[in-house]
């Protein structure tokens, strides 16, 4: 089906970390329903380390699989390390994506960057 790798299909059929975090330290919401994909990523940060991540995604197989993978990848990383996770890195961790699906993985990267920015904004506000 669609030349998706086994790993992509595994993450698509059994996505990790689906849901929301009640008191998140950062939320990244990106995409547009008109374009066919929306992702919301929630992160929980303690001492500069991402201790939890959850997502909700409206989108195709590649969008859901990359969402799932990115939540797995950020956990345990410092917020600085997480900034280095690009869509290419996520796609590679999934064993690659079909070329026409690479753009779907950008969603995961953008959601992560947005969540990290949101986190930075939140901590700078805290006295």
């Amino acid at each position: 089906m669609e030349n998706y790798s086994e790993k992509v299909m595994d993450h698509f059929m059994h996505p990790r970390n689906v849901g929301e975090i009640k008191d998140p330290d950062g939320i990244g919401r990106v995409g547009n329903p008109i374009c066919g994909d929306v992702m919301a990523l929630y992160i929980k940060v303690k001492d500069g380390i991402i201790i939890d991540a959850k997502f909700k995604t409206f989108g195709c197989g590649a969008a859901i699989a990359t969402s799932s993978m990115v939540t797995e990848m950020v956990k345990g990383k410092t917020t600085k390390e997480a900034l280095d996770i690009s869509n290419k890195v996520v796609a590679e961790a999934l064993g690659g994506l079909p070329p026409i699906k690479m753009h779907c993985s950008v969603l995961a990267e953008q959601a992560l960057k947005a969540a990290l920015e949101d986190y930075q904004k939140n901590i700078s506000k805290t006295p």
Partner: peptide
């Protein structure tokens, strides 16, 4: 409403059912 066609098709395919969608995600045009 609220979900995307390709992800429905992939799930149906795993259950052995073949259908199609008008979603962009199954075309190259986006």
């Amino acid at each position: 409403e609220y979900i995307e066609g390709e992800s429905i098709i992939l799930n149906l395919d795993i259950e052995g059912i073949a259908v199609s969608t008008g979603s962009a995600c199954t075309s190259s045009s986006l």
